[in-house]
Design a protein around this nucleic acid. Sequence first.
DNA 1: ATTTAATATCGCAATATTACGATATTAAAT
DNA 2: ATTTAATATCGTAATATTGCGATATTAAAT
Lengths: 109, 109
Amino acid sequence: MGLTKSEIFTDEQNRLASLFKVLGHPARIAILQYIINQKACICNDLVDVLGLAQATISQHLKELKNIGIIQGTIEGKSVCYCIEEKKWKEIQNLFNLFFEQDVKVGQCC
Amino acid sequence: MGLTKSEIFTDEQNRLASLFKVLGHPARIAILQYIINQKACICNDLVDVLGLAQATISQHLKELKNIGIIQGTIEGKSVCYCIEEKKWKEIQNLFNLFFEQDVKVGQCC
DNA sequence: ATTTAATATCGCAATATTACGATATTAAAT
DNA sequence: ATTTAATATCGTAATATTGCGATATTAAAT
């Protein structure tokens, strides 16, 4: 066990969950906020600012890149990371769609 | 290792990440969607509908209850679960605030 | 009182995640 | 050509999560 049974869920549920999951770590939230404030940054900036090892930051950046929410451009010997605005808004939209499924609830219990 | 270093992040970052994290599993997304569609449900309904064991569903319900996004009311020998609308909207709001931090980005790289 | 039904909790095995040191890789600087 | 700097990747240890069977617990039904 320990294996999430993705087969039994819809693609939509799996996709949505995997987006939430990537944002479900404070280091990745901190990275995104830093990139937003600075407009862009390189990996080493983050190593200095957050107190995590270079290998760890690099790994988190990779996960963020995987869902497309950030983009990295090689610039000499460093890589410039910035927000991929289109994907950013797309994800925000997806989340809002999820939260706006008719909650016609009312206090039923 | 394997221990998230929460001390080095702000409370806001930790709180936000932990909310995302709870939504970062397809079973919990599926549970929320089912509750919304049915307006309410009991644990056994979910066991029947999703293909997971009772112990597993109960565990997921507990995590959802922990962040306050659902509420459980004892009703005879079963427990009626429903969406806690207030918290639901609060979380949606928090997420939107996160996504609306000035993304004045523009393609910088 | 006993049985039945619904749920919660415990304990455990399998897998995943987090973090980091060590080691590539690559490009600029000397 | 060598050195320096920035990043990525590999391997590994520590911890967390997922899932489930077994076992409580609790309340209704018989």
